[in-house]
Amino acid sequence: MDYSYILKTSKVLPEKLAEFGFEEKNGSYFCRKNILNGDFYSIIELKGNFLTAKVFESGSDERYVLFDVENANGSFVGEIRNQVRKIIELFRSQCCKTSDTKKKYMDFIQNKFGCKGDNPWSDTPENTVFRCKNKKWFALIIKIKFSRLGLSGDEEVFAVNLKANPKIIPEITDKITVFPAWHMNKKYWITVLLTEAADWEKLCALTEQSFELVNSKK
């Protein structure tokens, strides 16, 4: 099962992996954790931007395939998924630096461009718009579910919509922290996650470009 969404909001601390039980092999990190009192075990694999888990029966080492079947229901498979999820959450808390960078980003915009954000929508007060002097916005901070960006999971995350040069959008949308814009024209706008996983310098540079593109319009 794919848990890579964890890495969209968290930055892995390599020095913590061995403490958690990971071992490196051929460029990947593997960790074995017992579940259901040792009757089953899960193999967690971390490779680049991917984090996955597989479940096996301890007695036979055969893979428990129902764990990966999305529509498989029942209390037993549900408990297995619950225990694996707890392991993944423990991994995030012990091996990752996790926080959103919304406040840091808002401070950057205010200091760099001398403008304060406004909240034009009463039903989504967490969404913040930053405007140029021409009253057009160059940055829209939103709270969005991963699924809206084509990722697995319903976890919510802060992100920002920025205007970009259409010629470079295909190059910069890596679908890891930079995506085709949500709810805006994908030809001219992008969505960038405001998380520890995002490249801060790149985020700032993209924001400056957005400001210049919007501010140049009369």
Rank of each mutant, 00 (worst) to 15 (best):
E57M: 15
V55Q: 03
R148E: 13
F158R: 00
E24W: 04
E23M: 09
P120V: 02
F179S: 04
F76Q: 06
W200I: 12
G59T: 04
Q94I: 03
I80K: 04
G59F: 05
K86Y: 06
K112N: 08
V84E: 11
L90V: 05
N111S: 15
D2S: 13
Y3I: 05
I35V: 15
K167N: 14
V214L: 10
N185V: 06
W189C: 07
Y41N: 03
L17S: 11
L51Y: 05
K167Y: 12
E70Y: 10
K8N: 14
E156S: 05
K104H: 13
D118T: 10
D107E: 14
N111H: 11
N71I: 13
F76M: 12
L13Q: 13
M106G: 00
K47D: 10
I190E: 01
G38P: 12
K16M: 15
I87Q: 14
P120H: 02
G78P: 09
I190M: 01
I176F: 11
P14R: 04
K102A: 08
I144E: 06
G78L: 07
E62V: 11
W200D: 10
A72G: 11
E155D: 15
F91E: 07
T177I: 07
I176W: 06
E196C: 09
G78H: 08
I35W: 02
E15C: 00
T191V: 02
G150L: 03
W137A: 02
K167H: 12
D107C: 09
M106V: 11
L194C: 01
L193M: 07
Y5C: 05
C96V: 07
V160N: 01
D174Q: 05
I6V: 15
L46F: 08
A159Q: 05
L151N: 04
E201N: 09
E57N: 15
T177C: 06
E201K: 07
M1T: 10
F67K: 12
K112A: 13
F130A: 01
G38T: 06
